[in-house]
Amino acid sequence: MNVLFFEVSLLLYFLGTALFLSQLAGRLEGVSQSAFVIAGSAFFFHTLALVSRMIEGGHIPLTTMHEVLSFFSWALVLVFLVVELRYRIHILGSFILPLAFISLISAAALPKEIKALAPIFRNVWMHVTLSLLGTVAFAIAFVAGLMYLIQEHLLKSKHRNALYHKLPALDFLDDLNGKAISLGFPLLTLGIITGALFAEFTRGSFLNWNAEQIGALGTWLFYLVVLLGRVTVGWRAKRAAYLTVLGFAGVIFTLVGVLVKEHPFA
């Protein structure tokens, strides 16, 4: 059942992504409306997929890479829906939905069977959820940064096209970027702490310098610097946008690297 829901939502995400991308070029107002409705129904089926998977598996579905990527997309779309309802920035979907769709199609390519969970891993979902939510926040910061760089380029080059009209104001994007980082950083911090505690509990050491942990710590340090730079010396606006776009590339690299390699509990 969960696979059926998953596939329906995948199809709807595909449709929504296509519509949102076509909206980038066109000027039609109606498109963003239907794209939003489709994204909303995709999210609905996706939620059903996650819930039914949880019931069928009897544990929180965050143990295989398929599940992790699926949850990442879900949370990303949730944030998009909330921001869209709050601020009505239709263009946001044209950036976030493709990201969610890519993540979900990667999930679809991976084995979907539910794995039995050894009792010792029962509580690992906390570490995974926190780290993933942090990653979602960084993804939002990435999207805001990307939009910022595009709009800043259009303003500097005095080039006005359809995109210029649709992209929101620079300071809104910078603000979104800042908020996303200041939310994502503590989440990642907690994710790392719970991960370390969990490692200590299962393997007897907080830190054993594997690639996953080095990647996570590197990411953490990077965003720490970005955040401190913003608060103290005014690394905002264009510089913040560059840094978060760069940072997220690092995050993706870590995430993929870590998860492709056998994660200890998978």
Partner: peptide, 8 residues
């Protein structure tokens, strides 16, 4: 109009 693209 331009200012509105810089300041929300």
């Amino acid at each position: 109009e331009l200012a509105k693209k810089i300041f929300q």
